[in-house]
Every structure is written in C-alpha cells, then in structure tokens.
C-alpha cells in the first residue's frame, strides 16, 4: 500500500490547500498518475502516485488545509484493503 501525502516542497511550507481530487475513491490508477491538486503559498502542485492500484478513501475533503507530511489517501495493490 502506498501512502499518498502532502509533500514538503518549500523550506517554510507547513500546509497545503486541497483544491481538487483528480482520482475518485475506488478508481484504478497507474504509477505517475495525478491523484490530487493542492495549492501551497507559492504554487499549484500535482500530487502524483508512485505505484499502480486502486485509490483508497479520500481522507480530506476539497477545501481542507492539510499539514505537510499528512497522508491524504492510499493506493491499494490488488487484494489489499485499508
């Protein structure tokens, strides 16, 4: 299971605004797909997954401010559950 999280991109970045879920819960994804769009104080950033599988539960809703490092969803390999 891969945890998809808010990456720390700047030295002073503490949280990000969850702008949009690109992949829905239960949707099949490939490594490199954009899962969500987030906004930091400097830029809009694509959050990408590194593995292929199925998107798990969205742990935050659009509009949430999410701390750096926090997992926003997981990518489940076949047979895995949350």
């Amino acid at each position: 299971m891969e945890e998809v999280f808010i990456p720390a991109l700047g030295m002073a970045m503490e949280e990000a605004y969850l702008e949009k879920w690109i992949k829905q819960e239960g949707e099949a994804v490939n490594a490199g797909d954009v899962i969500a769009l987030i906004e930091t104080d400097k830029a809009q950033v694509e959050v990408v997954c590194e593995s292929s599988g199925t998107v798990g539960k969205h742990r935050f809703q659009v509009g949430a401010s999410v701390p750096v490092g926090e997992t926003i969803t997981v990518i489940l390999a076949p047979g895995e559950s949350e």
Partner: peptide, 10 residues
C-alpha cells in the same frame, strides 16, 4: 523524510 516534512529547512 524531507518530503514528509521531517527535515527542518529542506
């Protein structure tokens, strides 16, 4: 670890 926010100052 840095991407996870665990390294102060990058």
């Amino acid at each position: 670890l840095t991407l996870r926010g665990k390294v102060s100052g990058g």
